[in-house]
Structures are given as structure tokens and as C-alpha cells.
């Protein structure tokens, strides 16, 4: 879908790169073998209900990618990709690895545009909590058919030195 579609809420001037946002959505479609639709964000903003994962971006863009969702949704994504239901420590590890694969693939697509970003190892968070510092982030609800919804935040803190 176009990154200009209204399903993505970018309410501030400090938008992340449209190209990177598009590449992250493309990466998700390549990695998760379930139909994906992007919907307007629902519910309270920046609230993590069960699982969250954060990956830092450096390079041509400095920022963060955050994915939030319920264990059920992450578990079903894992099942669709690897054919097994994941629980406990393996689910926690998969949440981090899913974000790593998406950010890594997005970095590869971004490189194809002549731009460079590097990514940090994922930080996985569990439990209900409010996340601060994402006020300026672009956000989107990602609905994976048969699995459920994840919330994506992409914040751009600053431009890097090219």
C-alpha cells in the first residue's frame, strides 16, 4: 500500500522517512506468509498490552522501530512462519527475532535505494506498560489475517550523516 494512505497516522512534522516506512511494510509482507492489511491505530496510544520489541536504527536515519502485540498474535505469526506454536522463552526469543528479520530485510530494501541504515539487537519487553518517547512516531495497526494485530511505531530522532 502507499505510505500516504490514511491508515498510517503521522501526526507530527518529525516524520520518519517515507521510504523506510514503505520498506518496513514490504519486509513484513515478504517475511510473514499471511495476508497483511494496514489499519488506523486503535485504542490508547503507546500502551503495550503483552509483548513489545524495540530495535534502534543508525546510519542515514537515527530512530527506533517498535512492535507491540499480544502473545497470541506473535505466536500465530511464528506458527505461520516455522510450523510450530511457540511459548515461554521461545516466544520471547521469536518476538525479538521477528523484529530483527523485519528490520534487517527493511535495511536491505533501503540499501537498494542507495541509502544505508544499521540496526541494533532487539530489546524485548513483556507485561503491560506505557511506553514514552513515541509521541512523534509514525504508527500503524498491522492486521495479519488469522493471527491478529500488531502495532508498529517508527520514530525518527534525527538525520544521520551520510
Amino acid at each position: 500500500m502507499s505510505i500516504n494512505a490514511p491508515a498510517i497516522d503521522r501526526s507530527t512534522d518529525n516524520e520518519p522517512s517515507d521510504e523506510l516506512l514503505q520498506d518496513i511494510l514490504s519486509a513484513m509482507r515478504q517475511i510473514v506468509p499471511l495476508p497483511l492489511s494496514v489499519a488506523p491505530p486503535q485504542g490508547e496510544p503507546e500502551w503495550q498490552e503483552e509483548w513489545g520489541v524495540l530495535i534502534g536504527i543508525t546510519g542515514d536515519i537515527y530512530g527506533r522501530i517498535v512492535l507491540l502485540g499480544e502473545g497470541e498474535a506473535f505466536g500465530k505469526l511464528g506458527e505461520s512462519m516455522f510450523g510450530m506454536r511457540l511459548e515461554g522463552e521461545m516466544l520471547q526469543s521469536f518476538v525479538g527475532e521477528l523484529a530483527n528479520m523485519i528490520a534487517g530485510q527493511a535495511a536491505t530494501l533501503f540499501y537498494g535505494r542507495g541509502r544505508r541504515i544499521d540496526i541494533t539487537p532487539p530489546t524485548v519487553m513483556s507485561g503491560k506498560m506505557q511506553i514514552y518517547g513515541l509521541t512523534n512516531a509514525a504508527k500503524a495497526a498491522l492486521v495479519f489475517e488469522g493471527a491478529g494485530e500488531l502495532c508498529l511505531y517508527i520514530s525518527k530522532d534525527s538525520e544521520g550523516k551520510v
Binding site: M81, A103, G104, R116
Partner: peptide, 24 residues
């Protein structure tokens, strides 16, 4: 690795890696 861009592959091969598989 999940990072499959050409620059990363070249760095890995220059460091001594023999092959490069992209995740997933």
C-alpha cells in the same frame, strides 16, 4: 543474518566468511 544488503555480504566475505544466508 537478517541483514542481506550487498555491503554487509562483502564485509562478511572480506572478514573470511564462506557463504551468506539471509533470514528467514
Amino acid at each position: 543474518s537478517a541483514m542481506g544488503q550487498q555491503g554487509m555480504i562483502i564485509q562478511a566475505i572480506q572478514a573470511g566468511a564462506k557463504d551468506f544466508i539471509v533470514k528467514p
